[in-house]
Computed example of a mutant assay.
Amino acid sequence: MTTPLRVVDVSGTPEQMGEAYGAAATDLIQANVATYLARFSRSAGLDRQTVLTRGAAFRDTTRALAPRLARMLDATAGAAGLAPELIYAVNARSELLYGDPSCGAPGGAGAELGECTSIGVLDSRTADGHTVLAQNWDWHPDHRDGNLLLVTRDERGHVVAALTEAGMLAKAGLNGAGLGVCVNLLGCDRDGRPGGLPYHVLLRSVLEADSLSWATRNAVRAPRSASINLLIGQAHPSGGEIIDLELAPGEAGWLHPVDGLLTHANHFETPLPVYDTVKDWGGSSLFRSARARRQLAAAGDRLRPEDILGVLRDHHSYPVSLCRHVDPRDEEADRSETIWTVFLDLDARSMQLIPGPPCIGREGMRFTIQ
């Protein structure tokens, strides 16, 4: 990260928030769209007109299934001076990059899926009695400077704070109800089906919920064109709760904490009747989740934030490790590294965002919902 993370804090109706978002981050949004147009062409063979056509289809789906979020995205595009179809295409970047069977393996995953290791720890296992989520977000280094912290305060009093790519509505984040989410890319043979809600709109719909129950409803009920893993938690005075949802087009599986711990990487762990495309590629996902859980369990009965972040700095199998670094043996288009580490304290409604591989030792920035 060569520049400080921009914070975009907006309020009002969906239209007002979208207009303010687009105006405050026009430069970042335009640059991020340009970066993805180049990547769609290079990695998936999609020209601009095809991207516009695909974006229009995702816009129709979003308008039908998530109208408030569609109104926000439309206003964002207008304020940023971009065709709305391009904004929807960027919010569906996972579908466009990995969801087309012509891109290679079943599900279109043309390389090892290199996006994230997630951790959840219940309050019964933390030193301060708080429920926490954390993750490494592994993605192409070209996208390092296209990120921001989006804070929205809507007219109903609902507050969301999410790390996101400019023009998108969410990545990892939390809300004023003490609910948070981390995300992992998955791939299966059902990916590419038409009619799904864009990957990052579905992710944002989780943060629109004021309870864990509604978060799971929003995620499971939405039609999907791409597989996605959501690690969701919510704090509560009587004890927090965490659940992991593995979502494929037309299927859903779930995992619960064991001894207060829950971890996930980039492959399916529930017995869903789908073909997991990780089987075509292998790679670090096959051990990252298990290794993270083992290290958490060995760190003690009451884990401190430093214990959890220490696991995310692990270098076993470097450079393709929990703390991921660029592997020069990968094709340039397939390179990945940890561009952000996210730590969410759901009881405190706070987040710590650490740029770059966490082993570098940067403090990052902290934000608390007020």
Rank of each mutant, 00 (worst) to 15 (best):
113 L>Y: 05
98 Y>E: 05
118 S>K: 01
132 V>Y: 02
108 G>Q: 01
122 L>D: 01
136 N>D: 15
110 G>T: 04
136 N>C: 06
105 A>F: 08
106 P>R: 12
118 S>Q: 00
121 V>E: 06
129 G>E: 04
106 P>Y: 10
104 G>S: 14
99 G>D: 10
99 G>S: 14
117 T>H: 04
127 A>E: 12
126 T>M: 06
117 T>S: 11
134 A>Q: 07
122 L>T: 09
130 H>G: 00
135 Q>T: 11
128 D>I: 00
112 E>K: 08
135 Q>G: 09
118 S>A: 15
129 G>Y: 00
138 D>I: 00
116 C>R: 13
126 T>N: 08
106 P>I: 08
139 W>Q: 07
99 G>A: 09
132 V>Q: 03
134 A>M: 03
101 P>H: 03
112 E>I: 15
122 L>E: 14
123 D>M: 02
114 G>D: 10
102 S>E: 12
109 A>D: 10
133 L>H: 10
111 A>K: 14
121 V>W: 05
104 G>P: 06
126 T>E: 06
137 W>D: 15
122 L>W: 00
106 P>M: 05
105 A>T: 13
133 L>S: 11
139 W>I: 08
108 G>M: 03
120 G>V: 01
104 G>V: 13
98 Y>C: 05
125 R>C: 04
105 A>W: 00
98 Y>K: 03
134 A>L: 08
107 G>C: 06
104 G>E: 14
129 G>A: 12
132 V>W: 03
116 C>G: 06
130 H>W: 02
114 G>Y: 03
113 L>W: 08
123 D>C: 02
128 D>K: 11
111 A>C: 15
130 H>D: 06
103 C>Q: 13
131 T>A: 03
120 G>N: 11
120 G>L: 02
102 S>N: 10
105 A>V: 06
125 R>K: 15
133 L>D: 04
132 V>T: 09
101 P>V: 01
130 H>P: 01
101 P>C: 01
128 D>S: 12
127 A>W: 00
124 S>C: 00
104 G>I: 14
139 W>V: 13
109 A>E: 08
125 R>D: 07
109 A>K: 11
133 L>W: 04
103 C>Y: 01
112 E>G: 11
131 T>C: 03
134 A>R: 12
124 S>W: 02
130 H>R: 12
128 D>P: 04
121 V>Y: 04
124 S>E: 12
130 H>L: 03
106 P>H: 13
109 A>W: 04
108 G>T: 03
102 S>P: 02
127 A>T: 07
126 T>K: 07
132 V>E: 02
117 T>N: 13
109 A>T: 07
130 H>Q: 04
115 E>Y: 08
117 T>M: 01
110 G>L: 10
122 L>G: 10
108 G>L: 07
135 Q>S: 12
121 V>R: 01
108 G>V: 04
100 D>N: 15
119 I>M: 09
122 L>F: 00
130 H>I: 04
135 Q>R: 15
106 P>S: 03
123 D>A: 14
117 T>R: 06
98 Y>S: 03
132 V>K: 06
114 G>K: 06
106 P>L: 01
104 G>F: 13
135 Q>K: 15
106 P>V: 03
121 V>G: 04
122 L>C: 05
101 P>Q: 02
115 E>M: 10
125 R>A: 08
120 G>M: 12
109 A>Y: 07
99 G>Y: 07
123 D>N: 13
136 N>V: 12
107 G>M: 09
123 D>I: 05
107 G>E: 08
113 L>E: 11
108 G>H: 01
124 S>G: 01
107 G>Q: 04
98 Y>N: 07
